[in-house]
């Protein structure tokens, strides 16, 4: 899984499949995958910092919120067009990441993780305090749309492919970065930070850089999500669940290899949709009410149990597991 070519081909195959299948998808699935693409961007952004350096952040949703609120509110109140407010939102996320990373990276392990968890909690408070302006927990509607077509279908396609473009661009950049010299250093920091210092590398500088890139990517996803929704949704920009799901996605797919987070992102969001559809299945009359309520209540729990079972058998994640099987198979053929 270390080779650059392998990662680029997995990325390439995935994004090509995503581009090709879109027209054949039912409308509901198209919407799901539109948002799954944003979520995959979040997960890949989390992975370049936490997956690669081992500094586990619980609070990456904070950067989604910073970028999302910046672009949304500027667009809403100052009436700046989205091509100006989205980059400003991303810049704010990077700035927030830089400001935060300098003190945060002095802490290690669980202390670092805890401090990252406090960020989105504090930001959510702030948004509620400034509710007159931010809309508080209700959010704000009327933000400029990413795709201003009057036709629903055209809009859906435009959103899907715009976010596909964002995901593809982010994926290409992060796979390149993760396999560059910088990526090698980040991996080495995860394995033995003292040894990296002993090799003459300023590890703090590299971690701050990774923090900035991570905040930038996650912020980009957050800014686009606001305009795809045409609204500032408090529950989506401030969701701690999403923050934790970024970790789940990356771990499930395989940490620190970017494409693992990409796959994990689709698995988590796609899996949730499958469970939701199962919960709405038409069942024989009589059993219907019982089964429905059962599935609805237990769906998420079942889904996460399945994920835990998967992790039990493939602790290193899905992609490294597949790669290992593939290599063993090839090895057997060569040996025989």
């Amino acid at each position: 899984m270390s080779s650059r070519a392998v990662r680029f081909s997995i990325l390439g195959t995935t994004v090509i499949v995503m581009a090709v299948v879109a027209p054949f998808l039912p409308s509901k699935w198209m919407t799901t995958l539109t948002y799954a693409q944003i979520f995959a961007v979040y997960a890949m952004g989390w992975d370049i910092l936490s997956g690669m350096t081992g500094q586990i952040s619980f609070g990456h949703i904070f950067f989604v919120a910073v970028a999302g609120y910046t672009t949304g509110l500027l667009n809403l109140y100052v009436k700046w067009p989205i091509w100006a407010t989205i980059p400003l939102g991303v810049m704010m996320a990077v700035l927030a990441g830089l400001l935060f990373s300098v003190p945060a990276l002095r802490l290690r392990g669980p202390y670092f993780s805890l401090i990252t968890l406090i960020l989105p909690l504090a930001a959510a408070r702030l948004v509620i305090i400034l509710a007159d302006w931010t809309g508080g927990e209700l959010g704000k509607f009327g933000v400029a749309a990413l795709c201003p077509f009057p036709d629903f279908k055209a809009n859906q396609y435009c959103n899907y492919y715009s976010l596909w473009g964002v995901m593809t661009g982010v994926g290409l950049f992060l796979v390149w970065l993760s396999t560059s010299r910088v990526g090698k250093i980040l991996e080495a920091i995860r394995e033995n930070e003292e040894a990296v210092e002993a090799a003459g590398i300023n590890t703090a500088k590299y971690k701050i850089f990774a923090f900035a890139v991570s905040a930038c990517v996650v912020g980009l996803g957050g800014a686009f999500s606001v305009h795809a929704n045409e609204a500032i949704f408090f529950n989506s920009l401030m969701s701690l669940t999403t923050s934790l799901e970024m970790i789940v996605a990356s771990v499930i797919g395989g940490m620190g290899i970017i494409v693992g987070a990409l796959w994990g992102g689709f698995l988590v969001r796609g899996g949730e949709q499958v469970i939701r559809e199962l919960a709405q299945l038409k069942l024989p009359i009589g059993t219907e009410g019982l089964a429905l309520s059962f599935l609805e209540r237990w769906a998420t729990l079942i889904f996460f149990t399945l994920l835990i079972i998967l992790l039990f058998f493939a602790r290193q994640g899905l992609l490294p597991l597949l790669a290992g099987l593939f290599r063993r198979r090839r090895g057997e053929v060569r040996g025989g």
Binding site: K184, A195, I201, Y206, F209
Partner: peptide
Amino acid sequence: ENVEISAIPNEI
């Protein structure tokens, strides 16, 4: 890869 880390300069 272990030895390579020492050969990489400290500039991003």
